[in-house]
Design a binder for these strands. Structure first.
Lengths: 254, 254
DNA sequence: ATCATTTTTTGATATTTGTCAAAAAACTGT
DNA sequence: ACAGTTTTTTGACAAATATCAAAAAATGAT
């Protein structure tokens, strides 16, 4: 009671040193990026096909729209560093968060078929992306098959991710949802070569709440409860998972 | 108050005639089935490739496992008639419903990559399926490209469906979830050539509850509320949507 | 560093939903 | 048609979460 307040234990002020193992900005190596499978393929295919799919690096400032709903499909984006949220605007309830994107992940492949993007995508922080126009596929001839295999691989991964996500959202309690959400982020960071125990939580709590179908206040209170159970610590936007096993048992499916 | 009870208005006994427009069993025409795109492709390709993908009709009794978790991938199934649920078994909370499958829909394409099915699939009623072994793809040579385009098309559809589903699950209230669930089913029936206003609800309410992360009792009470608002009627397993606009405004995103 | 703005936290209260128990209704097989 | 079983419905109450209002903390700009 008189030793330390919870605040002293778990939340840093701007003077407190932050977690040294947690990077200030996540930047994925090209080898860890989902675009890499494509690129490796093009290298094998030779220069001419590679030129069709020229990938260009581009910075995106915080709050900028990378994709606006309804824009014609012009290719896919890979996140090099930073993070994004995708959302749609519903008449009645305003913005609805559809998902978050982390370094190494692809945006927009699902718009290939309909021909236009069905959502908007905004940078949550200063970020960089690589862009791949995906035009002139037919010029590849029979090598197109290899390309398609890669597309199928990625789509199947995405189907599995989305289904796990649906499961997550079906969970009842705020603890289950938020726990599963954090473990989901941890797994995605780890899959791309980052520390899955200490990472940035780049989105606002109000966006997490919107995404998980909870109120902002419940997200805040549940995070406090996790801190009090010593499952994790939060310093600013930096999160450290202290007891992943326990968090997993709370989240139930991950 | 003394005219009719709600029960008289909206629920039939076994003597009451059921909705004539709602079929007792949904059976999709081959032209409406997602497998049809494949089949059309094989016809174009000639007999030899068609023989690789020989599709066989097969009845499945109620309660039978079509797929058991962990079984090696041996092809995809298309539902000709009836319905199925997919589920996984979690240590702690038992069965977790992952989704429902209706006539015209495909099961198992996402297991192509991992090589084994990640869930079990059980018939909710007496059903028939078509099976396509998906082996010997390489023998197709450069026609494989056409096949893969079809796979991509289906996977993209599935990604979009799953993302809409995730959205559904993120909705807070029981009315929003159940309304969105029913409209989702309606859309899927309609897409395969059935009446989207009067259709069977082949699954148990307890399975709907499990899937939506609600209690069985809340599902029952919410359906009653929908009946009292004259948004729909239910006679046994037969559902009729009376006021889709209002249901849509309750469900918010559909 | 300071001030204005945004974001998070906290408390009090209302609403929604889950849980438990029991009754009613629907389904199943004979 | 009947009896046993499963499924759905209902009521009472407990638990979880939303909402509203206000304070505290963090962030951003000058």
């Amino acid at each position: 009671m008189f030793f330390m307040t919870r605040s002293d234990q778990t939340r840093g002020t701007h003077e407190t040193s932050t977690d040294p193992e947690c990077p200030d900005l996540h930047e994925v190596a090209c080898e860890q990026c989902k675009l890499h499978g494509f690129l490796a393929l093009f290298t094998e295919m030779g220069v001419e096909s590679h030129s069709i799919f020229l990938s260009r690096r581009r910075p995106v400032a915080k709050g900028t729209l990378l994709i606006d709903v309804g824009l014609p499909f012009d290719g896919i984006y890979a996140i090099k560093s930073g993070s994004f949220k995708s959302y749609s605007l519903a008449e009645q309830s305003g913005e609805q968060i559809l998902g978050f994107f982390l370094p190494g992940e692809l945006i927009g492949l699902d718009a290939m078929r309909s021909g236009s993007y069905g959502y908007s995508v905004m940078a949550l922080e200063a970020s960089t992306v690589c862009w791949m126009p995906l035009k002139g596929l037919d010029a590849l001839g029979d090598q197109k098959t290899r390309f398609q295999e890669e597309v199928i691989r990625i789509l199947v991964d995405q189907v599995q991710h989305d289904q796990r996500q649906t499961l997550l959202m079906g969970r009842r309690t705020a603890e289950e949802r938020l726990g599963a959400f954090l473990l989901n982020l941890a797994g995605r960071y780890q899959r791309h070569g980052f520390n899955g125990e200490a990472f940035r939580l780049p989105m606002l709590q109000i966006d997490i709440a919107n995404y998980l179908g909870l109120s902002m206040e419940t997200v805040s209170r549940t995070l406090r409860s996790f801190r009090e159970q010593e499952l994790l610590t939060i310093q600013g936007k930096k999160l450290r998972i202290l007891n992943a096993d326990c968090l997993r048992s709370i989240a139930q499916y991950c």
